[in-house]
């Protein structure tokens, strides 16, 4: 008779786990919309960053120019930028009284993408630059002496440093999808519209609705795990 109260006490968390599995395998519409949106926002942001940061980063790694050191320091600072502050900056830009206020982008997935571009761009830029720089000078000389044009040299160097560059991209995506500060501020955690993994977990935990939070948490953890398997694989192959 004494056992009953204990089992009742355990209930919320246990129930949470069983509910989590239920939600996942019954393909609950809301949970999958959250997953889809998170991937969409972080994926698009990372992709856009890749398109711009990869050429720019490899160019910076290859070329000598004025202020290179200063710019590198700025990039490195941006790589560790607090996401909450990023969110604040984008919020101020997009808010009604801000310079881009009339675009009415605040609390939309587009705003979240903008914030995450600002997050991922310096990471990809910095890692690509470092990766291209780390290709030994003798390989650069080899490529030049074999008759590469400037463009061919640049392309080959990017290819030579592909492992480190890919690591940088995966890292940026990982940071974006697990980030909470910026998407919370500029997205607003609106149900069916701007609710992501992280913002949902916060809200559900506060509401005591552990089932959804645990389910999302497990997926996020699994995702991080997969990303790290990738990274470890790349890094060990390098050595």
């Amino acid at each position: 008779m004494e056992i009953l109260p204990v089992s009742i006490k355990m209930n919320p968390i246990l129930v949470g786990f069983s509910e989590a599995f239920n939600l996942l395998f019954s393909f609950d519409e809301e949970i999958w919309s959250i997953i889809f949106l998170s991937f969409q926002v972080s994926g698009i942001a990372t992709l856009i960053s890749v398109i711009f940061a990869l050429p720019l980063g490899s160019y910076m790694g290859l070329q000598e120019f004025r202020w290179k050191k200063t710019i590198s320091t700025i990039i490195n600072t941006c790589m560790g930028f607090p996401t909450v502050v990023l969110g604040l900056i984008v919020f101020l830009l997009l808010s009604k009284s801000g310079p881009l206020g009339n675009l009415a982008l605040l609390y939309s997935p587009v705003a979240m993408i903008i914030a995450q571009i600002l997050l991922t761009f310096p990471i990809i830029l910095g890692t690509t630059k470092a990766a291209v720089e780390s290709v030994s000078s003798s390989v650069k000389e080899l490529l030049l002496s074999l008759g590469s044009t400037r463009f061919q040299l640049w392309k080959s160097l990017l290819l030579e440093s592909r492992k480190s560059t890919i690591s940088g991209v995966i890292m940026a995506f990982g940071r974006a999808i697990s980030e909470v500060g910026a998407v919370m501020i500029v997205g607003g955690n609106i149900r069916w519209y701007t609710r992501t993994f992280t913002t949902a977990i916060i809200m559900q935990t506060r509401m005591g609705d552990f089932g959804m939070a645990i389910a999302l948490g497990m997926i996020l953890l699994l995702l991080t795990f997969i990303i790290n398997i990738f990274l470890t694989h790349l890094q060990t192959e390098e050595a």
Partner: peptide
């Protein structure tokens, strides 16, 4: 430059297969 070849003291090759290494100068 395309008429000149330079062979380094220490062997330098590209991080790819032997075949693609040899094909590179012709490819460009």
């Amino acid at each position: 430059r395309r008429k000149i070849a330079f062979v380094h003291q220490k062997p330098v090759v590209l991080n790819t297969t032997v075949k693609k290494n040899l094909a590179y100068p012709l490819l460009i």
